[in-house]
């Protein structure tokens, strides 16, 4: 029974560990620490139970006063997330605002990582979603909107 529980919990721990490792690595490279977000654990629990819009997990790290330029941020984000994550969208503007979207398929679920930099604020968001459930949610919203 204990082994079964460990087998069920281990993949979640490994994924959580990867995101934590990424944020620690970014903190080390940028010299800033992620902000503590009150009740975020509760929000994750709700997402884990209710799966809103097909989301199964949500991880978030916010860095304020991260003194990194747009180009530097993009390089740091690429090196931090590693080669398992495929960059699919990169948006950059002349004010230094950068948004990178990385994707990692994992069976029926897709893990999406969004790394953004706006002035001195850096945000990493990772969400694990089931595409079919997300589409069902979008279709339902569309139907409700037209009804």
């Amino acid at each position: 029974m204990r082994r079964l529980a460990l087998l069920l919990v281990l993949p979640c721990l490994l994924r959580a560990g990867e995101f934590d490792w990424m944020t620690r690595e970014f903190a080390r490279q940028s010299g800033t620490q992620p902000l503590h977000i009150p009740f975020f654990g509760l929000a994750r629990f709700v997402i884990g139970v209710a799966h809103p819009a097909g989301a199964h997990d949500l991880r978030l790290a916010v860095f304020e006063h991260a003194n990194v330029g747009g180009e530097q941020f993009s390089r740091m984000a690429d090196s931090t997330v590693g080669q398992d994550w495929k960059p699919i969208v990169r948006v950059r503007d002349s004010s230094g605002e950068v948004s990178n979207i990385y994707v990692q398929p994992g069976g029926k679920r897709v893990r999406v990582l969004i790394a953004t930099r706006d002035q001195n604020e850096v945000v990493f968001v990772e969400v694990s979603i089931k595409p079919s459930e997300l589409m069902k949610f979008v279709d339902d919203q569309r139907r409700n909107h037209h009804a």
């Binding site: 960059p87 699919i88 969208v89 990169r90 948006v91 002349s94 897709v110 595409p131 589409m135 279709d139």
Partner: peptide, 21 residues
């Protein structure tokens, strides 16, 4: 002023098509 770069290779296209209804 702004650049947008979208890269979807075959595996990513298959994945993205999963989002289509």
């Amino acid at each position: 002023k702004e650049t947008v770069d979208v890269t979807l290779d075959q595996s990513m296209l298959q994945l993205a098509s999963g989002f289509l209804s």
